[in-house]
Computed example of a mutant assay.
Amino acid sequence: MKRDPLDPKQLICESYRIEGIGPGECRSIFLDWALSLPEGQDVQAALAALVARYEPSHPDHPMTQVLRDGRGASTAPRRRGGWRSRPRQS
C-alpha cells in the first residue's frame, strides 16, 4: 500500500471504516492525526484536501464534521508538558 502524505498512519481513512463511530471518537482520532503530522506540514492545506477527498462520499459522517471544524482552527495543536515546558532551575 502506498503511503499517504496527508494521512501517514491511515487514521482518517480507517475512521471512515469503523461502524457506528461517534463524534467523540472522531475528535480523538483527529487529535492523534494532527499530532503525528510532520513538522512544517501545512495543516490547513491537509485538512482542505482531506475534506475534498471524503466529504463527497461521506457528507454526514462524524469525521467529516470534525475535519470541517478543524479547518476553522487557526493553529495546529501542540504538545504540552515534558521537560521543555518546565521552568529552568537556576
Rank of each mutant, 00 (worst) to 15 (best):
M1H: 10
K2Q: 13
R3N: 10
P5F: 00
L6E: 07
L6Y: 10
D7G: 05
P8Y: 03
P8C: 03
P8A: 03
P8Q: 04
K9M: 12
K9E: 09
K9I: 01
Q10D: 14
I12M: 12
I12N: 05
C13A: 09
E14A: 14
S15P: 04
R17L: 08
R17D: 14
R17T: 12
I21S: 06
I21G: 07
I21Y: 13
I21R: 05
P23R: 15
P23K: 15
P23V: 14
P23L: 11
G24S: 15
E25Y: 12
E25W: 12
C26L: 11
R27S: 13
R27Q: 09
I29Q: 12
I29D: 13
I29K: 08
I29G: 11
F30W: 14
L31D: 06
L31T: 14
D32H: 12
W33K: 00
W33M: 03
A34M: 02
L35W: 06
L35A: 02
S36K: 13
S36D: 14
L37W: 02
P38C: 01
P38G: 07
P38E: 09
E39I: 01
E39L: 05
G40D: 03
G40T: 00
Q41V: 12
V43W: 11
V43D: 01
V43L: 14
Q44D: 05
A46R: 01
A46C: 08
L47S: 01
A48C: 03
A49M: 00
L50R: 09
L50V: 01
V51C: 06
V51Y: 00
R53A: 08
Y54R: 03
Y54K: 01
Y54W: 10
Y54P: 00
P56H: 10
P56A: 10
S57N: 12
S57I: 13
S57C: 07
S57M: 07
H58E: 14
H58Q: 15
H58M: 12
P59E: 07
P59R: 08
P59D: 02
P59K: 05
D60C: 08
D60W: 06
H61P: 04
H61F: 11
H61V: 02
H61M: 09
P62V: 14
P62W: 11
M63R: 04
M63K: 03
T64A: 11
T64H: 08
Q65D: 09
L67W: 08
L67D: 06
R68F: 08
G70N: 09
G70R: 08
R71Q: 15
A73F: 10
S74L: 10
T75C: 07
T75F: 08
T75L: 06
A76Y: 01
P77S: 02
R78T: 02
R79G: 00
R79C: 03
R79E: 08
R80L: 13
R80F: 04
G82N: 00
W83H: 07
W83F: 10
W83E: 07
R84C: 04
S85P: 00
R86A: 04
R86G: 01
P87L: 05
P87C: 01
R88V: 07
R88A: 06
R88G: 05
Q89Y: 11
Q89A: 07
Q89K: 05
Q89E: 05
S90Y: 06
S90F: 04
